[in-house]
């Protein structure tokens, strides 16, 4: 019982995830700045932003839903933290593995997106409502390729458990090469999940003045920002666990390897953010359904055929 509380609140739960989320947010901004040939923020910047937002006045707009508006940021952070508990970090098995935890993680990662949608919808601002509509439109286009890309490796491994998938691919390292198209699809679809450039339409500062978060300020926005930073860590960890299953057997070395893997994935994310511009919403939907879904489908067929051959 005490151990479970320790896992939820301190390591690898809320505290560690929060600190690592701030570090990842810093690295993201620093890499982005260096790629633009500028100095970038100092190392404590995300922490300073977080503390400042915590100390600011919290305003709940008159038109907003008084109950849902302050509750949604907390729900988003809680969902992300819960998802993190089911991802393998320092060994091939997560803390609480069970058959089907991959699907639970994917649904827990959908919850923050729904919170962004409802947060914007309930805040009573036209900009926020427009952002919310975009959140949901985007959800319907990236969710299908993302799920297919993450579930096809599971198909080959013949298990729905993330730990099982990791163990299968750690035992057969060459099979990782088969999943490269799925990896590409997953990384691109995650840009939509994390609402980053080129799929940052819901926030779209220049058009929607901050999109779904227009009315959020102070402490509530701090929690939302923390949830976004943590989501970045969780998504990077999930991709690392499914597509990069390299382990040494020593927990400390594996933990170091986990940090390296997530930073490599973060670097890919930051590269995307630097070299691309924001596209329009219908271009985003068309791209996801025309290119990502067929690529994921081909991967699915290949994996189905291979499963027959290898069995």
């Amino acid at each position: 019982m005490l151990m479970a509380l320790f896992h939820i609140l301190i390591f690898p739960g809320l505290l560690f995830l929060g600190v690592y989320g701030l570090i990842m947010a810093y690295l993201d901004r620093k890499i982005y700045a260096r790629l633009q040939n500028r100095q970038g923020p100092p190392w404590f910047q995300p922490l300073a932003d977080f503390l400042k937002l915590l100390g600011k006045e919290t305003i709940v707009p008159e038109l907003a839903n008084k109950k849902a508006f302050p509750f949604l940021p907390v729900l988003a952070l809680a969902a992300v933290t819960t998802a993190y508990l089911y991802i393998p970090l320092w060994s091939m098995s997560s803390l609480y593995p069970f058959e089907g935890d991959l699907i639970v993680i994917l649904y827990l990662l959908t919850l923050p997106t729904l919170c962004f949608f409802l947060g914007g919808w309930y805040s009573g601002s036209v900009y926020a409502v427009l952002g919310s509509v975009r959140v949901i439109t985007q959800l319907f286009s990236y969710e299908v390729p993302l799920f297919m890309a993450l579930l096809t490796p599971a198909l080959l491994a013949n298990t729905w458990s993330l730990s099982g998938i990791t163990q299968y691919y750690a035992a057969h390292p060459l099979y990782i090469l088969i999943n490269i198209p799925a990896f590409i699809v997953a990384v691109i679809a995650c840009q939509g999940k994390l609402e980053r450039v080129p799929f940052d339409l819901p926030e779209a500062e220049t058009e929607l003045a901050g999109g779904t978060f227009v009315e959020y300020g102070g402490r509530l926005y701090a929690i939302f920002k923390m949830a976004i930073d943590c989501e970045l860590v969780v998504v990077a960890s999930l991709i690392a666990a499914v597509f990069l299953p390299f382990y040494t057997g020593n927990p400390w070395a594996d933990f170091g390897l986990y940090i390296v893997k997530t930073i490599v994935i973060l670097f890919i994310f930051a590269l995307f953010r630097t070299i691309m511009a924001r596209i329009r919403i219908e271009q985003m939907v068309a791209f996801c359904w025309k290119y990502l879904v067929p690529l994921a489908l081909i991967q699915l067929i290949v994996n189905l055929l291979l499963k027959g051959v290898l069995a």
């Binding site: 700045a33 305003i59 978060f213 009315e215």
Partner: peptide, 16 residues
């Protein structure tokens, strides 16, 4: 001018 060095960020909405 890289104002992010000082932590300056431009925000779209007065609430932030």
């Amino acid at each position: 001018y890289d104002v992010e060095r000082f932590g300056i960020l431009q925000q779209g909405t007065p609430r932030h």
